[in-house]
Design a protein around this nucleic acid. Sequence first.
RNA 1: AGCCCCGUAGUUCAACGGAUAGAAUAAGAGUUUCCUAAACUUUAGAUCAAGGUUCGAUUCCUUGCGGGGCUACCA
Length: 591
Amino acid sequence: MNIQNTIENSVKNAFKSIYNANIESVEFQATRKDFEGDITIVVFAFLRIVKGNPVEIGTKIGEYLKENVVEISDFNVVKGFLNLVLDDKTFISSFNSMTTDANFGILDPKPNEKAVMVEYSSPNTNKPLHLGHIRNNLLGFSVSKIIEASGKKVYKTQIINDRGIHICKSMLAWKKFGHGKTPENTGLKGDKLVGNYYVKFDQEYKKEIIELVASGMNEKDAKKEAPILLEAQNMLLKWESGDEKVIELWKMMNQWVYDGFDITYQNLGVDFDKNYYESNTYLLGKDVVADGLNRNVFFKKKDGSVWIDLTNEGLDEKIVLRADGTAVYMTQDIGTAIERFKDYDLDALTYTVGNEQDYHFKVLFLILKKLGFEWADHLSHLSYGMVDLPQGKMKSREGTVVDADDLMQEMTNTARTISQELGKLESYSTDEKEKLYKMIGLGALKYYILKVDPKKRILFNPEESIDFNGNTGPFIQYTYARIQSIIRKANFNFNDKIIDISLHPKEKALIKQLQNFPNIINVSAENLSPALIANYTYELVKDYNSFYQSVPILGSVNENEKIFRTQISQKVGDTIKLSFSLLGIEVPDRM
RNA sequence: AGCCCCGUAGUUCAACGGAUAGAAUAAGAGUUUCCUAAACUUUAGAUCAAGGUUCGAUUCCUUGCGGGGCUACCA
């Protein structure tokens, strides 16, 4: 039983014996730094049950606890807050039990429980990944890790949007203007090459519209009648009818993109357990829609299109099948969800998709529920804010995007520059150095994005580079490296458990932080928020740096103190490494 | 028009309904005979507005203002 439970029971007993009252629960919080104490009980909450002056009640409870709970050495009451001071021994034994578990805070997945699936990334295969995708990937990957650490089996997945008119646009532009260019003969990354033709298509399309308008057509018609667009639509028809040449081109160009994505994913450090392809799943939902139509979940309009009426739920009518019988986005998402629950023994499925699709997912979940799938209640949308530039939204077609590969490269370059100025790595080989620059650069990028509450939109100004000082990834990596340096230099056995020692306030603060780690993992898993892990790690590191600065570790005169402080350092290092691994960030031994 | 998210120091981010709203950065002042100064210490600086609920509101409710998004037979 942990201390908090012990105290809670004692508080209940206290109320029984002093006021003859039953308390259901006790509200705890960490004592604020400005007050003396380690754990605080909020007395206000009891006023509903026991009338009286909160200070008086707090004092009485405090006296009772001091008397009856050995771990409590003192208390004080401020307003309605009862601050309890815990015995050093309590902290020391708590610390000692933490150190016996190298993965303290991380739970192993329970094999007999159902798994959780997390979808993220889900790119279109007609253009390269950009900063928006980076946020998506980092969030999805990190959330997968966090859920896993909270004790669940996790499958990472994506749906690849590999078909549709947008794909045909880049295919057509390549056919018309590509002159046989390939990633091999140009040295361009495949996704970049294909993306260029997507942009090219748009330029040509716009040119044609202007020409048509000049020749007297109104703009609305021109947008529909532009020859290059008609040609692309024709290509889509051919694709759907299985035209060999079109399919061949489609396969070739998609493969270029996949090869390009693989490199980006690898650099970013994310991966997937299973890919779903829209080209395989886009027809799946249609059967379900037909079935739902029979059961009157859906209704058919005169023109043959199929809809669902969600006006009773405060939403609108939503189309689920086109008049010509082809699938829409929603149709395919219905099918894919069902497929996933067939493929795996899932308890829950989370979609990592930007908040512009909040409405779509609300509707999707509602439809699945109306179709009678019990698991529909276990679907969630990890909705995150867009990454915007100072001039507004990123638009691939207009070339106003921050490219994922370029950004990662820039971050690495900045890390290299800073590191070379500091010049601490003489003994490293060029390879080791480059690996480290990448680790630091990506650490800065990932932390910068993940520390922000997913719901909030990020405004990214390319002019102002991402920081490497202050509340940043490198700051935390640096602390880790310093700790490793201490451990390398600790040429004595520091494995013995220290029991009898009086704690420095900074040591106590660190142990308190460390104790919190398992709880933080649970809370961030529940809230699907890596930001909580990031902020926790930052707090821990702040406390450690303060400790490092104000007390000697290896230089301690007292042998027990030296051992204990080294152990604390090691544990903090382990925790940094674990929590950063949940963010997908690596930590260096030196920097 | 309706619906959804967001409004906190100059800027970027924190704060289960709890105490004197924390950090970082930029600005000012310090700390290297000592374990990595990408660090530490320190000074100044903020809850969009008005009501309401509460012992207590940045947090919940209402209204207004400001920013973004969605309301496509695009995905």
